[in-house]
C-alpha cells in the first residue's frame, strides 16, 4: 500500500452538531446487487441514482456489464425512491439524509467501495467523499460542486412552468427530452419516464443553493454528457476542476448516460479508469 501524499492536506469534518442533534430518521432501503460469476479481487462498486430515479436505473445496463467485467456491483435507492421506504416523508427530507442513506449502504458492503453517483447522486457522493475514504469516486453528469444556478437556468429556458411548479413544492417532472437523446426509441424512453418517482421539495431547493464540498478522500473521475439538458457541460468541467482533474465529456449523449443507447462508451471509460486506479490489489 502506498502512502497517499495528499491526506494531510484534507481537512477533516470533526464538528457536525446538526447531525448529532437531528440525525436522519431510520428507514428501510433497497440495495440491489449484481455479482460476477467468479469472485475477483476488485473492490465493490456502489451506484447512487439522481433526482426521481431509483436503483433500477443502474440495473438496466451498467451493473450487469460491470459485473461481467468482474466487478461486484450494488445500487442503493435513496429514501423515498425506488423500493426504499420513506416516500411519505419526502417533503421533510434533506440532502444530508441521502448522504446518510449512502453511508448506511456502504456499511453493509464487505469492504470500502468505489462510489458512482449520477446527477443529484453525484452531489450526494461528493458529500460522502468528504468524510468517508472510499476507494474512488466517479461523478456522472453530477450536480455542480458549487451551486445549481446553471441547471436552474437550463430548466428555466426549456421548462419554465415545471420550474414554477417545483418552486411551489411540487416534484420537478422530468420528461424524455430532458433526460434522453432522440436516438433512444420512444417505447423504451416512455418505460423509463414511467418509472420516475416523486422528489423532495426541500431537496430540489437545496440543489440550487451554493455549496463547496471539502476535498475528496479518494481519487475522483468526472464525466459529462455533451447534450445534457439538466447539468450544463461547463458545470461538469468546473466540478472536475474542483477535484483537480479534467472532465471527460461524451458528445451526442443526454443526461441519463447509463440509460442512453450509447451507454457502453462512458461505462468503458469508467471501468478502464477504475482498473488503473483501484483494480489491482493494494
Amino acid at each position: 500500500m502506498t502512502r497517499p501524499t495528499t491526506r494531510l492536506e484534507q481537512p477533516e469534518p470533526v464538528l457536525t452538531p446538526i447531525e448529532w442533534s437531528f440525525p436522519a430518521p431510520p428507514v428501510e432501503r433497497e440495495l440491489l446487487e449484481v455479482l460476477p460469476e467468479q469472485p475477483t479481487g476488485k473492490p465493490p462498486i456502489l451506484f447512487v441514482h439522481g433526482l426521481s430515479h431509483g436503483a433500477w436505473c443502474w440495473r438496466e445496463h451498467w451493473m450487469p456489464a460491470a459485473a461481467a467485467d468482474g466487478w461486484r456491483t450494488y445500487a442503493v435507492s435513496l429514501r423515498g425512491h425506488g423500493a426504499s421506504a420513506g416516500r411519505e416523508h419526502l417533503d421533510r427530507t434533506l440532502l444530508r439524509h441521502y448522504v446518510h442513506d449512502v453511508l448506511q449502504a456502504i456499511t453493509e458492503l464487505p469492504e470500502p467501495p468505489v462510489l458512482v453517483g449520477h446527477s443529484m447522486g453525484g452531489l450526494v457522493v461528493q458529500h460522502v467523499l468528504e468524510r468517508y475514504a472510499a476507494r474512488a469516486g466517479v461523478l456522472v453528469a453530477p450536480a455542480s460542486a458549487f451551486h445549481g444556478l446553471g441547471s436552474l437556468g437550463l430548466l428555466l429556458r426549456h421548462r419554465p412552468r415545471q420550474v414554477l411548479r417545483a418552486l411551489a413544492g411540487r416534484t420537478l417532472e422530468l420528461d424524455r427530452e430532458l433526460l434522453f437523446s432522440d436516438d433512444l426509441d420512444e417505447a423504451t424512453a416512455q418505460r423509463y419516464v414511467d418509472r420516475l418517482g416523486p422528489e423532495g421539495a426541500l431537496v430540489q431547493h437545496q440543489l440550487v443553493l451554493p455549496r463547496r464540498p471539502r476535498p475528496s478522500k479518494a481519487p475522483v473521475l468526472v464525466i459529462g454528457a455533451g447534450d445534457d439538458r439538466m447539468v450544463p457541460v461547463i458545470d461538469v468541467v468546473r466540478t472536475a476542476r474542483h477535484y483537480g482533474t479534467r472532465a471527460h465529456v461524451f458528445r451526442g449523449m443526454a443526461h441519463d448516460m447509463m440509460l442512453e443507447p450509447d451507454w457502453k462508451a462512458p461505462l468503458e471509460l469508467v471501468l478502464r479508469w477504475l482498473e488503473d486506479t483501484v483494480g489491482r490489489d493494494r
Partner: peptide, 15 residues
C-alpha cells in the same frame, strides 16, 4: 444515543 456514539465514517445500522 447512536449519533454521539458511532464512528463518524461508519454509522451504526438504522436497524
Amino acid at each position: 444515543s447512536k449519533p454521539f456514539t458511532q464512528y463518524p465514517d461508519f454509522p451504526m445500522p438504522d436497524g
